[in-house]
Amino acid sequence: MLGLVLLSLRAVLLPGGFGKVYVVPQQSAAVEVAQLDNEAKGGTKSSAVIRWSECPPFAPNATLSWPRTLGLWTAALLTLCVFSYLFADNVGYKFAEALVVGVSAGFAMVVGFWDTIVAQLLVKLTPDLVRAWALPLLPPNQSPDYWYLVPLALGAMLFGRYVRGLAWLAQWPIAFIVGTTAGLKLVLVIDADFANQIRSTIVPLVVISNGQFDWWLSVRNLLLVVGVVASLSYFLFSFPGSRALGRLSRVGIWFLMITFGASFAFTVMGRITLLTMRLQFLFDDWLWLIDPSGKRLPS
């Protein structure tokens, strides 16, 4: 805590400041071409679409971006709110938790609306309207496909669960979703997971490379086959196992323990990497105490 206070004090006292985001205006070639094209066709000169990109504080034409600066501070404070859970459950953590639930739900709905409902459903039902409104690059003269009224109706039926007496309507779309998932998954898992994994396990147990017996690769292949068979034998619960099966499944447990050990190590590394990234965000992007990529150093 003392270290954190001292670091924050140092950040405040630094001459260059901290916690600011600078941007420069950028206009892409595509925008200029589109504007010139519009003017050549006799159209009025459209107002320039200015896009902003982040830049170092010393870059020419660099402007302080208040929305991004506010965002940086929000992100930093929310990060600290989440980390405060290490001490105890508190109001700050609960606030961040409630916020992320709301934003995530809203975000998922927005993605579903624009990427699926507009791009896959409304495009088929009312192509002219969608072209004039949101997707001007849609090919013209596209006639409506009224088969897509079926998913629209099924989607509306899903909301039947909110109407007393009409809850049974929701069973039809649910049956459709479950049936399609079952059909898709059955094909996918049998082909990609089941058959492919067995096919990959059928390997030569005696490997001859360049006319010589490759004992190391042979041992590894043998271990692979034994490992798969032994691990699978551990999952045989349908009938009482013999003593031989018991021994085989014990070997399978050892293989599974090695697999879990490796997965555990990768999980630990992944979480620690995320932690270092958050700390780098706090100390680099927010407090400007470190600058590993040299983005704030004048060239």
């Binding site: 079952a182 998954k185 089941f194 271990l223 691990s231 699978l232």
Partner: peptide
Amino acid sequence: GTFNTAGQRAIIIGIALGVAATSL
């Protein structure tokens, strides 16, 4: 390459069998 692959493969085959049975 060997031990982890063998274990993962057995787990994937087991899950695939479970999903296929449930789907059926």
